[in-house]
């Protein structure tokens, strides 16, 4: 009986010993997590293209995913990769078609500063920048050059013009942890195309990852769902 009791007490001690060691290890872990520069990766997919693919009925389509590293819960280096295209016909019956991959690299800065003596919020509000690049091909069909007086019309097609474009973006947005490690949020982007076109040169109407080409730049919105590892 005494032996049994002794065994029970010893094993209890041992167990508590193991527990305390465990507790120490986990404490060290949390400490190291807080102190380490690299604190995790967030993987995201963009939900806006899924909705806009449906809205545009194939006139524009795309898929986008991104990966973001967490450095000190302050800096978030970002890499985004996507595939986008357009197939649109103008009111003058000109058809434009393009598709291609694109990538953006850059960094987000979390401006949601943690309050003193509190656990840093997992939600973030950020501003950042990107450089975007897309190698793609495009084509125009049925460009009609008409001459009313002479009554002539020439139809022209330009197929498979390969080119690449580079642009810069200013981004801002927020992410909220909606469930454990699952984040949702939005990003708005103001994009500016780099480089100039020669007057009269055949230029794409739409650039994968950039959007519709216009003089004043382009706006973009992402609504992302992500998982943090």
């Amino acid at each position: 009986m005494q032996n049994i009791l002794r065994f029970f007490i010893i094993s209890l001690f041992c167990l508590s010993g193991i527990y305390s060691v465990n507790a120490q290890v986990s404490k060290q872990k949390t400490d190291s997590v807080v102190k380490a520069a690299f604190r995790g990766l967030r993987l995201e997919i963009d939900l806006v293209p899924i909705a806009s693919n449906f809205i545009y009925k194939g006139e524009r389509y795309g898929y986008e995913a991104g990966v973001y590293a967490d450095l000190k819960n302050k800096y978030f280096p970002a890499v985004e990769i996507g595939f986008a295209g357009a197939n649109k016909t103008s009111s003058d019956n000109i058809n434009f078609k393009t598709s291609g991959i694109y990538t953006r690299v850059g960094i987000d800065f979390n401006i949601n500063k943690p309050k003193k003596d509190k656990i840093p919020s997992k939600n973030m509000v950020f501003v950042g920048g990107r450089i975007g690049f897309s190698p793609f091909s495009f084509g125009y069909k049925n460009i009609l050059v008409q001459n009313e007086y002479w009554g002539t019309a020439i139809s022209q097609n330009y197929n498979d013009i390969t080119t690449s474009k580079v642009w810069v973006e200013i981004v801002a947005g927020m992410r909220v942890e909606v469930l454990k490690n699952i984040y949702m949020g939005w990003t708005v982007r103001n994009k500016k195309l780099l480089g100039t076109d020669t007057l009269g040169e055949i230029v794409p109407y739409y650039i994968p990852g950039f959007g519709v080409k216009s003089d004043g730049g382009s706006w973009g919105v992402n609504y992302a769902i992500g998982y943090r590892f």
């Binding site: 806006v48 809205i55 006139e59 927020m174 909220v176 706006w219 609504y223």
Partner: peptide
């Protein structure tokens, strides 16, 4: 924070639905 987030989702879907005139 969450409400605002969802509001932006709806807004971005609306924004994506806007098509420019192509005349």
């Amino acid at each position: 924070f969450k409400l605002f987030n969802i509001g932006v989702l709806l807004f971005s879907v609306l924004l994506a639905g806007c098509t420019s005139l192509d005349e």
